[in-house]
């Protein structure tokens, strides 16, 4: 059988090393003071559930990469982009100061670029990343500042620019959230006025899990889609593979 094996080694083939492209998801979460109490408790309760549902399913975990970025006065990566099957425990997010959208967008651009380069070095292929932007308030930094940072994040000439889905509740402003999602149709969602933040967060996190699971299934089909949570008017978004 040795001759056959040697011949086969010389040709280009579909081989075991040919993996599916990975689908990066970034949860970009507002942890300003207004999130204190029940909302942040709910987030911390739901994150391990998210890890369990996604990470413990070998088929989903293999194509999904997940990161948690929090922002207030500053933004920080509390869970670096990872295969959730290999994450032993989820971080606890903590409430901090104000609501700097600029810090969030600048950090997101830097993190996505770094993660992409690291992934490429490790031989990964990437689908366009998805950012799930969650906020319960209006930005506290000057408008021109966060808009400039946002422009850099969604700059079409930057090949890694993500698809952004935004979700708001509490004091979040629908027009601003729509702008965060580049005013593209069916990408921003605001909870109805008076909805209990804890219930909204729980629903949102469950929707996020469902979104990631559905999106991972589409990644296997070869026609990847970012499938948003089941919310009114949300439509799947076709996702391309990065160069």
């Amino acid at each position: 059988m040795t001759d056959n094996l040697t011949q086969a080694l010389a040709s280009a083939n579909v081989g075991a090393e040919e993996r599916y492209a990975v689908f990066p998801f970034y949860l970009c979460l507002d942890v300003s003071q207004s999130m204190s109490g029940e909302p942040v408790r709910q987030v911390n309760a739901e994150l391990p559930q998210l890890r369990s549902t996604i990470g413990q399913d070998p088929a989903v975990a293999e194509v999904v990469r997940f990161a948690v970025v929090t922002f207030s006065d500053v933004a920080r990566t509390v869970l670096p982009l990872a295969d959730l099957a290999l994450v032993e425990s989820m971080p606890e997010v903590q409430v901090e100061g104000r609501t700097s959208y600029a810090a969030a967008f600048e950090h997101m651009r830097r993190v996505i670029e770094d993660d992409y380069q690291a992934g490429r070095a490790a031989g990964e292929r990437w689908y366009r990343p998805a950012v799930m932007f969650v906020s319960d308030g209006r930005p506290t930094d000057p408008e021109e500042q966060w808009r400039a940072a946002h422009k850099r994040l969604v700059d079409p000439s930057w090949r890694r620019h993500p698809n952004i889905l935004s979700f708001g509740f509490g004091e979040a402003v629908p027009e601003i959230l729509a702008a965060v999602s580049e005013n593209k149709p069916n990408r921003a969602w605001v909870a109805t006025e008076g909805a209990a933040p804890s219930a909204v967060v729980a629903e949102l996190m469950a929707g996020l899990v469902q979104s990631i699971v559905s999106s991972s299934a589409s990644a296997y089909s070869g026609s990847p889609q970012l499938v948003p949570p089941r919310l009114p008017n949300m439509q799947p978004i076709a996702v391309d593979e990065l160069d």
């Binding site: 094996l5 086969a8 040709s11 579909v14 081989g15 075991a16 090393e17 040919e18 599916y20 070869g222």
Partner: peptide
């Protein structure tokens, strides 16, 4: 047997000839 995915269908639907290298 190969403990891998061998993504074939996309190429097959595109009418490509597929060559599979099964690691043994």
């Amino acid at each position: 047997v190969g403990a891998a995915h061998f993504p074939l269908q996309g190429r097959q639907r595109a009418g490509e000839r597929v060559k599979v290298a099964l690691e043994v």
